[in-house]
């Protein structure tokens, strides 16, 4: 019988570290939260509920996460902004050996150069976390968003 409290604590810490990594603009560290064969996607709730697979960001290797960060730093043009994640407590939905399935609500606030802070994206993380290594890592992270209207564009991961 796995110690659920222990697992919850570990996943909450992972989610907190993850959020701070993005919000502190340390995106170069962001791919390290994932396994090599990971799958990361940002997908609209309307698609998930209709069983449709199209995501606005879909990376099925850690290399693709690195490419996202490099493109953001060097290629893409977007309004300058900072992000602020608020992530709710995790809800562990399954534990199977080293594999943890977990969900957590999130809100991402975005502040651009005009200084106004807006809700940029609200949704829920649906995760598969592997806890075999030194630190737990995401094997899968789906950011399923309610905020279907992406304001302007999305470049920073959620």
């Amino acid at each position: 019988m796995p110690d659920l409290d222990h697992i919850r604590r570990a996943v909450n810490v992972l989610n907190t570290e993850y959020a701070h990594c993005i919000d502190d603009d340390e995106l170069e560290r962001w791919p390290d939260f994932f396994t090599e064969d990971c799958e990361y996607q940002i997908i609209g709730r309307e698609n998930v509920e209709a069983g449709l697979p199209a995501a606005i960001m879909f990376c099925d290797s850690r290399g693709m996460l690195i490419d996202r960060v490099v493109a953001l730093r060097k290629a893409n043009v977007y309004p300058e902004h900072v992000s602020r994640h608020l992530v709710g407590h995790c809800r562990i939905t399954e534990v199977k050996g080293d594999l943890i399935r977990s969900e957590a609500n999130y809100v991402v606030f975005q502040t651009r150069l005009d200084g106004e802070t807006r809700i940029f994206n609200a949704g829920k993380y649906v995760d598969e976390i592997v806890s075999s290594g030194e630190t737990p890592k995401f094997r899968r992270r789906s950011c399923i968003y309610d905020t279907h209207r992406i304001q302007t564009l999305l470049v920073t991961p959620i």
């Binding site: 940002i42 697979p53 199209a54 995501a55 606005i56 960001m57 879909f58 990376c59 099925d60 693709m64 996202r68 493109a71 290629a75 893409n76 043009v77 977007y78 992406i150 564009l153 999305l154 470049v155």
Partner: peptide, 15 residues
Amino acid sequence: IRNLNLVGPAGYISM
């Protein structure tokens, strides 16, 4: 779906 990274609101060549 993987190619869709190029286009759409988060598209490498469209955002």
